[in-house]
Design a protein around this nucleic acid. Sequence first.
RNA 1: GCAGGGGUUCCCGAGUGGCCAAAGGGAUCAGACUGUAAAUCUGACGCGCAAGCUUCGGUGGUUCGAAUCCACCCCCCUGCACCA
Length: 436
Amino acid sequence: MAGVDATLLEDLTRRGLVNQATGDGELEQHLAEASRTLYCGFDPTADSLHIGSLVPLLTLKRFQAAGHKPIALVGGATGLIGDPSFKAQERSLNTPEVVAGWVEKIKQQVSAFVDFDAVENPGIVVNNLDWTKDLSVLDFLRDVGKHFSVNNMVNKESVKQRLQREGEGISFTEFAYILLQSMDFSELYKRYQCTLQIGGSDQWGNITGGVDLTRRQHRGKVFGLTLPLVTKADGTKFGKTESGTIWLDPKRTSPYAFYQFWLNTADADVYKFLRYFTFLSVDAIDALEKADAERQGRPEAQGVLAKEVTRLVHGEEGLQAAERISQALFSGGIEELSQSDLEQLRLDGLPSSELPREFTAEQSLIQLLVDAGMAPSGKQVKDALGRNAVLVNGADVGMDSNGVPAEVFAGGRAMHERFYVVRLGKKKYHLFYRSA
RNA sequence: GCAGGGGUUCCCGAGUGGCCAAAGGGAUCAGACUGUAAAUCUGACGCGCAAGCUUCGGUGGUUCGAAUCCACCCCCCUGCACCA
């Protein structure tokens, strides 16, 4: 057996990645002794994971790097039910076809973080639908249900608000979710000698359920470890921006937008995020923090964070593209961009739209920008226009230009005959062009 | 099924006949200041450039006028009953 890195848990702790663990410290020894198999589940609630899943995903990777065997479980079954943990309300069910489609997408996504070819400790991806789809209700109730105490389940913190809070209830379906997830752990223990489940802190109840079930069904000693919920210092929700959730799928969130998201991390959060989301050593991160503190002005940490995480998720190419765009837009001189630079930015994922040859009478500048997705409502564009916050190829456009888009996008004002870089506010860019 | 409580603009939450596109807070957007920060201040925040238009679970009604009153319906919560 290849050696395992016995300091893994210590490193995780230093990173602040350990929220809770079962087993009174026995886990550390368990992991230090031998290469273990562990798993983490990802339910398909959309066709892509978002950055909320990044912490567990990367943690799986950390375990593998330390010599353990990771299993990424995609919840083809659990996704059909819906995890009630700490959810304020019952969710509507998705059809089996839809969930099955999502499962495939999530499988692929997850696969990027697990090394299947490691000789000693290859990872695998499984789907819990495989061992639940043919299970009969009676078998389920007798073999699994019998091990659960409703009294116990009712006392779980994760469903408390649904049980007590006025205005919301919980269906039996969601209430039974924990049985399914617990079954997964027990099943993986049986099939792969999986002895550790990791997950977000909201998964504690489900994880301990699995630990108990494994013991009851197989007299197996298994462990659970939860990771902290990612929070921001200002109290707002992590992973959301003006334009919505940050997804891992480049079709939903371009590498550029992804990169920008991390680059905009608040100082108060950035070092914590570096520990959570990168593989840089804690010492290196501490050193960076110290250097930033000593230097006046802008810290380097955000740049490092954006670079590292974008590379992890979108690869070197995605990172290059993101950096090219960011460089071009924010480090001055858009007017110096060559025609091929502009073309490249478009390919790199800078939001862009084609302009019509002729403008109709109804087309106002405001409407054009709204249609391009630069703002959700015309009011915002109007506000920006009124404050000279709209720039076309570097020159600001006032409210009086609203009615005359043909003038704003006149051929003579184009870059290389056909490009217009429009900036709204400080950070929102959009490339308008006419086909060549 | 019965009784009681409730469904308001992204969220929380005021509003119980006109002064309501609807208080306040949060989130969000823009401006100033900055570091593409934070904090702070300013403006915006249903839709529409505007005139204006469409909202307060749904449908009808009363009224000059309804988020506010009435009727019916839908949904949620709590308790009781039913299941026994």
